[in-house]
Design a protein around this nucleic acid. Structure first.
Length: 453
RNA sequence: GGCGACGUAGCCAAGCGGUUUAAGGCAGAGGUCUGCAAAACCUCUAUUCGGCGGUUCGAAUCCGCCCGUCGCCUCCA
């Protein structure tokens, strides 16, 4: 039985899809800059959720949107002196490069707000027609007081919220908490024609419209960062449920925790460490994923290069286990208890830290089996399958030595001659030279093996 | 002010009423193997879960108070 923690009910609940295909919507990024590791965290979590549901036999349709109309995009375009289209095209491409680098699988659909404008306008029209929204100077606002369960996701209560002095009353709104569905065009801004005049959509409506269009009016899972609960997801619920009458809009609201930053004083170096592409220059995608998945998705992983580096070392252990050459034996390591632990952990609210612990225990079992002369090939295959569910590639890191395989093997042959002649100093010099190039060697019964690390 | 999270070994991090006198990873110590190493294996590294009370036959796990971190309430994965 698969259980997930549902932010809407604050409890773990059994996951049962509405139909025979799991419908999952994940709030994506606003494309005005390169993706950072916080985006990586969220994308990896929902990528793993997708992979795991498939592993458990479900068909999954995952929609992951791009917000490509927004103030920040307009500001960035103005600052760079280019069009908003150029900005969004550039950063959508950058997003895909980053996520491909992290082995995040593409969603089933990656819709963009600007490409689903008819659906957005249509949804606003439904709300206006139903009396849930009103127009004001070419803009359209959602009438929050019309919605008696407004605030159910965030636990906020409208009147309490309004005690906050930060809410400014935009001239003419019926209620300070009413939020904008359609923004009347201002000069020099992208605009679309609508029944209320030229303008652009407010932030929240696009997600409802795209979820409706690409998944339907009621979905199984809605995901995103914890920071989106209020106001974004609260408003999505309000407008979606009001428009469709289908309650709940999403059966499960699943929110990932937010990255915690180690040491605030390092703002400069942080800028780089925070960027996915520069992180990938320094670390493998496996290390970044393992670092993230060794914390539970709802906790707040510490962003610290030392921790990613330590995950990089942990990955070596898994790779070692999988690269063991099989031996002929009637006895074989039984991986099933470990696979069972993995599944039980993942079933329980995607407990990746426990699932990973089961994988490490299986690795130990494989090493022991090898030492005992037992066949470990099935167990190694199981490690590949299970780590695959976590999106780990188990690929050897790229070469940093600048040496070809032949050159490395020539050096090893040279060392062998020195060893045969018992010239230990010469032999060790070759080994040190290789080590400096990031190549480690091991003398085993069957000769010397080497690997890049 | 309102809503909410968290505090477990040197570091990261599971566990959330008994199967645990607390998983797993990194780091560290000793041993096996090795010419020496590396990797791997074996052993060890929290009698204890921020503090103090309480509930219970039994608590890291539930309740109360206190101390300390943090997120959201405005754009944010």
């Amino acid at each position: 039985m698969i259980k997930f923690y549902n932010s809407l009910t604050h409890t773990k609940e059994e996951f049962v899809p509405i139909g025979d295909e799991v419908k999952m919507y994940v709030c994506g990024v606003t494309v005005y800059d390169d993706s950072h590791l916080g985006h990586a965290l969220s994308s990896i979590v929902f990528d793993v959720l997708h992979r795991y549901l498939e592993f458990r036999g479900y068909r999954v349709r995952r929609v992951h949107n791009f917000t490509d109309v927004d103030d920040k995009i307009i500001n960035r375009a103005n600052a760079d002196g280019v069009s908003t289209e150029e900005i969004t095209a550039q950063y959508i491409e950058s997003f895909f490069e980053s996520m491909d680098g992290l082995n995040v699988r593409r969603a089933t659909v990656h819709p963009r707000a600007t490409e689903d404008m008819p659906e957005i306008i249509g949804l606003i029209q439904r709300l206006v027609d139903g009396g849930a929204a009103y127009t004001l100077n070419g803009s359209v606002y959602f009438r929050v007081r019309n919605d008696d369960d407004y605030g159910k996701l965030s636990g906020q209560n409208i009147e309490q919220m309004l005690e906050s002095t930060r809410h400014e009353m935009e001239g003419g709104k019926e209620h300070a908490a009413d939020f904008v569905l359609w923004k009347a065009a201002k000069p020099d801004e992208p605009r679309w024609d609508s029944p209320w005049g030229p303008g652009r959509p407010g932030w929240h409506i696009e997600c409802s419209a795209m979820a409706f269009k690409h998944l339907g009016e009621q979905i199984d899972i809605h995901g995103g960062g914890l920071d989106l609960i209020f106001p974004h997801h609260e408003n999505e619920i309000a407008q979606s449920e009001t428009a469709s009458g289908a309650v709940p809009f999403a059966r499960f609201w699943i929110h990932n925790g937010l990255l915690r930053i180690a040491g605030q004083e390092m703002s400069k170096s942080l800028g780089n460490a925070f960027n996915v592409k520069s992180a990938l220059e320094e670390f493998s995608s496996d290390a970044i994923r393992l670092w993230i998945l060794q914390s539970h998705y709802r906790s707040n992983p510490l962003l610290d290069k030392d921790l990613i580096a330590s995950a990089e070392r942990s990955m070596r252990r898994i790779r070692q286990a999988v690269e063991i050459e099989s031996t002929d034996s009637d006895d074989s390591v039984d991986f099933r208890p470990f696979e069972k632990r993995f599944v039980e952990a993942m079933d329980d609210d995607l407990n990746t830290p426990q699932a990973i612990a089961a994988i490490f225990d299986l690795c130990r079992e494989v090493f022991r089996g090898r030492d005992a002369g037992i066949d470990v090939s099935d167990a190694a295959e199981a490690i590949r399958d299970l780590t695959g569910v976590l999106g780990l590639t188990l690929e050897a890191p790229p070469d940093k030595s600048g040496l070809s395989d032949d050159e490395i093997e020539a050096l090893i042959e040279q060392r062998k001659e020195a060893r045969d002649a018992r010239c230990w100093g010469d032999a060790d010099a070759v080994r040190d030279q290789l080590a400096e190039s990031g190549i480690s060697i091991a003398d085993g019964a069957g000769g010397t093996t080497w690997s890049r690390d």
